[in-house]
Each structure stands twice: as structure tokens, then as C-alpha cells.
Design a protein around this nucleic acid. Structure first.
Lengths: 231, 231, 231, 231
DNA sequence: TCGTAAGCGAGACGGTACGTCGAGTCTTGCT
DNA sequence: AGCAAGACTCGACGTACCGTCTCGCTTACGA
């Protein structure tokens, strides 16, 4: 799941309807009238996250968010065109991978994935992620909003791979995109499609398997590992 | 995505409300009243699949299925408790992995994954899969219905791995479940979470990467492969 | 209410769909197949009456009657075209006015009306009557079925008026139809349109009022009555 | 029918769900949110009356009213709890007895009843009235809503009787409630239970009969009448 | 300092779909 | 054939949200 995740705050305000800019871009028209309340903004996003973890994405209603946030429905629609960009923005506020540098690729990956798992269980990530994925397949426009967020969120993972290349730990011609998919794929499949709990110890095994491959030469290769002996 | 998929017809009739059995279990009471029409059953499932690919899971309405199938809503609710088990059953009718034995693990995997990709693009699989995944996170009951289907669908993949173990192609102590997740994970992530098209040639690369790992010694290792040269 | 009511069994079989006759009229074609069960017929009518008093006409469902009578819905529709003629026939089996001859018009009317009131409270009459009336206004065909029943049911009342004419108790040129409406009207209005309970003693007052009119000379006129002193 | 009827606009707003009042009661809170459209209100009531005369009460559906009025179903349910109070309010808007004072009781009654008959034939009164009556027998709550309306509608009739008492035309101890039932009863019975047309001339006869009673002393009494000679 | 334009909570609006129930019909297998 | 059982299509039920629209405030600018 992780390759599709990481970092905070890529900013998807572009999804909103309203002028937005105003005071920000210098020289813009003076934004007459009462400015939008930042406090209201937070209340809506907080209510959205709370409801997401309680009832899930499908059962999330704009009406529910409004009443939970103590806000009028119109106030929400004034800022987000639908519940989708609202959820995307709320989602973007959730914690992702935590930049970690242990000196080895295996160490970095194990640390980041373990940390991520903790967040995963404590936030609505498990709920939101597949819902957004489900929506994307019939709403290509969502991709444009979502992709930058996802790219941003997986940055620490990519950085670890780049460091490994720089250190000569992995081949320079490695397809890093594919590599990060390989690391993150099995975990995503287990979490989302199989609803399986992932034991922290399992993370280490998965990283090893991804690093050395299914056809790893022999147990000796594994024994040569710098990580905890597994199996 | 693939490890969570394969084969046809695992039979999830258990989701239906009605007695169902009747003539099947020998000695059962003769099922009084007019029997359910098998033709109606097909019409409903077909309409469901058609609508799934057109509008997706979230926008799928039972009302829409009924009118498309030329059937009363009650007839649908008589057989499925909600749109979820209906979709699961329709989904189970979709093609999955095709049992293939080329003599080598890499050959089997490449053939099956390539074949699967074709199905994937031609059927509502791309739509249905993440939708079911999304639902599961807030509906644990779905897992019980869905899991047997998924296990059934991935059987050909598991079989190929088992053959590879028997041939000594991979270590006997390999965790096969994790291995199949590793093969299938990257593809799933690309298809669902990134909305990326996967080029057939990419499948071969992915298989190679999964078999030899990110830290594979060098391109020479790959060159020594018994499979088609890639890159 | 009464003028629209009285007597038993005017027979409205004409409303039914089926051939009906069969074995009854001698010489008729031999009524191939299994003959209709008379027992079933009774069971259906009984269930209808029972449900009428329990839930009322509007909430009466053919489905309910069928299940209460232990009968298939088709069996009911084979005999009655809809719930309306079914209810009419069941209604026709209810008790109406009881033929009474006390020697004076006032005595006859008071006796019959009092008796009728008792039935009224113990049977679904109160429910069925206005429902049928309500239906008639938009279903003229109902009138044809209902009217003979009603005429039959009010016969004892008409007979009492005729005896009064014969005795010279009332003018020979009296419009008897109007007279019976005058007797029965106030009670009907109170029962149906005002939902008022009618005390037995009130019946006597009403009869007196109808007999002597609103402009009756004075209380003395009433005091000269041959009936029980009221007021 | 008449005693259960008369006058316009007794106001049964109490049946509605909503607060209603708002600006009416002085000092009330300013009724937040968009106010209910009076135009919508009229459209709904008009559609209700139109459908009532076309299809009758039983076949009247809220869905039908909504679509005829060009209104959402929810808008109807927001204002009336069910079709019953809706119909009651629509009914209350129908014309009833027209206050008339000719100087004599017979004159007042004949005028008012004749006028009423005209309304009766031109509006859905014939349909609505028995339907409401039918409903009441199984829905006591209806009585509470309906009774004040009916009392209001019959006011002109009661007033005429009171004037007659004041003039000494009828005895002071006359039970006026019973008297109005006597006047109105025969007409109600004929209209509702027998589906009979009532000729205007018949109204006069009925009034005379009610005033002088079935046992009226002799034709001479009738000849002494101030009204048109009848029979 | 004040007018004014926008933001705001509330909630009514026309709709669509929900899952259920009954209508009236049809089908099956038994009697 | 009649019959009990029950599946069939159809259409209405009353509810919940949708996304839009008025209301009558409140709030911060800029003239």
C-alpha cells in the first residue's frame, strides 16, 4: 500500500470551486466580503476524518459531516465540489511514511513499513484508501487530484531506494518505481484484499523476500543477511 | 491483484437468503410452490455485470439492475440480501487465472498474468475488485463471503508455485502465501491504486523482479535465466 | 345506517368470476375436474370477517385472508374478482334487523334499532359499511352488487312501516322510502360520521323525534305517546 | 351528510408536523432556515383535490399528489404526517353550508341544503366524505383531527336551529344536536349509502318530513305550512 | 464609520433510491 | 380440473441524502 502513500500536505485546493487564492497571490482582486473561516475549514476536515473511521467512506454523507461539524451543507459545497475532493483533502492530512535513514536499505524499509503499519491501524487509512481506489476506476478525474498526493506520500520510500543506489547497494539500472511497487504490493494486497492482519515480524520477512526474490539462491544467502534471522 | 483472484465458480450460494437446495440434497422436501427461474437468475447477474462496467459499484443501484434485467426489485431481494452478495456472485462468474503449465515457474507466471491482464481490461474486474475491498473494511461479514471466492480464484497461481517447489526450482521452505502476494502485489498496486496501464512486457519484468529480488547480483544473473530475455 | 341494512343472504354470487353453477343446476355440463370445496368457501368468508373486525377494511389484504384461511391466494381470486365482492359476500352474512312486530310502529322501530345496535358493536359492520360506501363513489359497479343486499337487509324495517300504514297509524300517502331514511339517517350519521357511541336510551328519543318531527307541538304531544316516557 | 359538514376554514394546521407558527405567535423565534413556500402548499392541496375527484380516496397516492403538484414526496411528508391529514386539510377547503337567514326554519334549511347539494355534485365531497368516515372507524386519531372541522362546517345549520328556538318556532328544550342529525341524516344516507341522486324538490320534502315527523297529524298540518305545498 | 458583499447556520426544495409489502398472475406438483 | 405454495412483475410506501436554493444573520474589508 505504501508506495501509494507518504508525506503530508501536497495541497489539492485546486479541487475546490471557490476563488481560493484572493489574498495569497499578490495583486489579486481584493476579495470583497467576509473571508472564509479557517476554523470552519478545520472543523469540516476533522468531522470528515472522524466519520470516516466510524462509518467508512461509502456511508459517509455530506449531511453527516455538516451536522457533525456544526456547519451548513452549503458551506461545505462552497469549498468542495463533492465528498470526494473533501475526503482526498482530509486523507492528505493523515500521517504516511516517516523519513528514516538507518544506513542500509533493508533497515530503512523495515523501519518505515513498521511505522506505517501503526498509523494504518490507528487512522481511517484502511477505510479511505480502497474507497478512493474504487472511485478512481469510474472517475478518471479523481486520478488527477489523487496522484500528486500519492506521489508525495511515497517520497520517503523512493528516497531510501535512491540512497541505496547511491551506496551501490542495488544496481544502478534498477527500475525504482517497480521496486517500490514490489515492496509495497504484498502489504497492500494483504491489508486491503484479504483483510489480513500483518504481524510486525512479517514486515521483515516481506522486505527480505522483496530484496532477494523468491528464487533466492539458498538459505545461505538468507543467512548472510544483515537482518534478524527469520524462518 | 492477481493473488486474490483466479478460477471460476467457487459457489457462494450461501449468501442467498432462500433455502436454495431443494432437489440438490437427496431426500429433501420437494420445494413447494413455483421454483425460482434459472433464467431470471442469469438475467439478473448479466445485468449486474453490465451495469458494473458501465457505472461502477458505487453507482450501481438495485433498481437499475432490476429494470435492466426486466425483473421486479423483489425478485432480486428474494435471492440476495443486498447488492453486495449480488455483486460477489456476479464477480465470481468472471474469468480469473487460467491453469497453465509451461514447465518453468517464470513461464507459468508470465503466461497466467498476461492472460489475466487481458480479462482484466475486458471485464468489470477493475471496477468490482477495489469496490469489494473498500466495502470489506467496514463490513467484516463480507470477508466471510468473499474470502472463499478469492482463495478459489488464485488456485492456479498457487499450483504453479507448488510445482516449482516439487521441481526444486525454489526452496522447499519458501512461504508460498507470501510469495504469491509478492508476485501479484505490484500488479495490484499499479492497477488499482495508481490507475496505471500495464504493458504486457512489463509483466515479464515484474515476474523477474519478484523471482530474483531487488538486490539481484547483477544483470548477468538475469541473463542466466531460463526465461525470455527482458530489458 | 339501518335503512341500508337488513336480512341475510341475498346471494351475490354473480360477482364471482368462475362458472359457479356446475353441479348445482341440474342438467348442466358435468363440471369436469375436482369440484370446489364448500368448506374452503366458508373458511375464506370466516377469515374475511375475522380480519375485518380486527384490522378493518382498508388494511384487509387478500394475502392475509388466504393465510388466515389456510388457502392459496389463487383460490380466492378464482371465486371473487377482488377483495370487494369478497367483502360484500361476507358482509351479507352478518346479522341485520330482526323481524319484530309489537303492534305499534314506535315499538317495532325501537325494538329493531336497539337490537341492531347490539349487532353493530359486536361485528365488523361499523367497519365495513362506510368502507363499502366509500368505494361505491368511485366504483359504480359496486352499487349493482351492493344494492340488492342492502334492500334485502332493510326489509324488516319497511315491513314495519307498511304494517303501520295498514293499521292507519301513519298516513297512507307517506313516502315510505323517505320515512325509513328519516329513521335510520340520524343513527347512521352519528355512528359513521361522528364516531359517536349511541346509548340505547337515545334510540327511543330518535324514534320519537322522527315520528313527531322537530316542530312537534309541545312536550305534551310526546307525553301522550304510547311508548315509554323519555325526557 | 350535512350535519357533519359546513363552513370553511376551521384551520387544522395542528395536524402538520412542523412548528408552523413562527411569525404568528408574537415573540416567537424567527424561524431559522428557508421558510416553507405558500405556493407549494396550495399546489399540493389543489393536486390533492383534483386527484380525489378523479380516483377517490383509496386510490389516492402521495406519490401521485407529488408528481401532479410538481413537488417532491418529502415536501408533502414534511407538512403532513400521512395522506389522511392532507386530505382533511384539503377537504376543509371545500365549500360547505352557506349561512342563510330567510326568517323561518324551513326556509333556512331548504336554502342551505339546496345550496349544499350543488357543491356536493361539483366537488370531491361525495368521494372524500365517506372515505374519511371509513378511515375513522379504524383510526380513532382521525376523529380528533376531523371532528373540529366537521363541527365548524355544520355551524350555519346549528345557527339556523338556534334562531328558530329564539323565535319560538321550535320548543326550547329541543335537543338541537339530534335535530340537526335528523335533518341531515336522510340526505347523507341517500347520497352515501345508496348512491342516489337527490332531486332539489326532494330536499323540500325531506325538510318538511323532518320538521313535522312521520306521524304528522294530517295533510292539514302540512297545508298550514309556510313553505311550498309538497305532495 | 459605515456600507456592502460575501460567509454562514438552518432548513426547505425537487429528486432518486432505498428495502418492504401487497396486488393480481402464473407455475409446479399433489389430490 | 381444484388446490397450497410460492415465485413472478409492478407500483406505492415512508425515509434518507443528494445538490441547490432561500432566508436572516454576522463579519471584515475598503471607501
Amino acid at each position: 500500500m505504501a508506495a501509494t502513500d507518504a508525506v503530508v500536505g501536497s495541497g489539492i485546493k485546486g479541487v475546490t470551486r471557490a476563488s481560493g487564492a484572493g489574498a495569497i497571490s499578490p495583486g489579486a482582486t481584493a476579495a470583497a466580503g467576509r473571508p472564509r473561516s479557517e476554523q470552519t475549514h478545520r472543523a469540516i476536515l476533522d468531522a470528515t476524518l472522524a466519520l470516516l473511521s466510524e462509518v467508512g467512506f461509502a456511508a459517509l454523507t455530506v449531511e453527516g459531516v455538516a451536522s457533525r461539524a456544526g456547519v451548513g451543507k452549503a458551506t461545505i459545497y462552497r469549498r468542495w465540489a463533492s465528498k470526494l475532493p473533501l475526503v482526498v483533502e482530509a486523507f492528505d492530512g493523515l500521517p504516511g511514511f516517516e523519513e528514516t535513514d538507518t544506513g542500509t536499505l533493508a533497515g530503512d524499509l523495515k523501519a518505515m513499513l513498521s511505522g506505517y503499519l501503526k498509523n494504518f491501524l490507528a487512522t481511517p487509512l484502511a477505510t479511505v484508501y480502497p474507497s478512493l481506489a474504487a472511485e478512481r476506476s469510474h472517475n478518471p478525474a479523481l486520478g488527477e487530484v489523487l496522484d500528486p498526493v500519492l506521489v508525495g506520500r511515497r517520497r520517503p520510500l523512493d528516497a531510501a531506494l535512491e540512497r541505496a543506489v547511491a551506496r551501490g547497494e542495488i544496481a544502478a539500472d534498477t527500475d525504482l518505481e517497480m521496486a517500490s511497487d514490489l515492496i509495497v504490493g504484498p502489504i497492500a494486497v494483504r491489508l486491503f484484499f484479504r483483510g489480513a492482519r500483518i504481524h510486525p515480524a512479517m514486515v521483515d520477512d516481506m522486505v527480505e523476500l522483496a530484496l532477494h526474490g523468491i528464487k533466492r539462491a539458498s538459505p545461505t544467502t538468507a543467512a548472510a543477511d544483515e537482518s534478524t534471522g527469520k524462518r
